[in-house]
């Protein structure tokens, strides 16, 4: 399964989840869905905005783990 690790990048950039949600343009609820691993899919546009805001690569926030 794919894990979305936002906490590490948020800590590095000293950014809150609220600010991230605001700057990316998605709701806090959706950020929570991402963080909890309940998301079924992520749009490239959303991933691009997250990477732009957190100044990171997709690989910095996406991790693959065997089930």
């Amino acid at each position: 399964m794919l894990i979305v690790n936002l906490d590490v990048m948020l800590a590095r950039r000293k950014m809150s989840v609220t600010e991230l949600a605001q700057r990316v343009g998605i709701t806090l609820a959706n950020i929570s869905i991402l963080k909890n691993g309940k998301a079924k899919a992520i749009r490239f546009s959303t991933l691009e905005k997250i990477c732009q805001v957190l100044e990171c690569q997709p690989g910095d926030i996406l991790e693959y783990r065997e089930d």
Partner: peptide, 8 residues
């Protein structure tokens, strides 16, 4: 719809 709702 469930899948679309969980597409971020």
């Amino acid at each position: 719809k469930e899948e679309a709702d969980l597409t971020i």
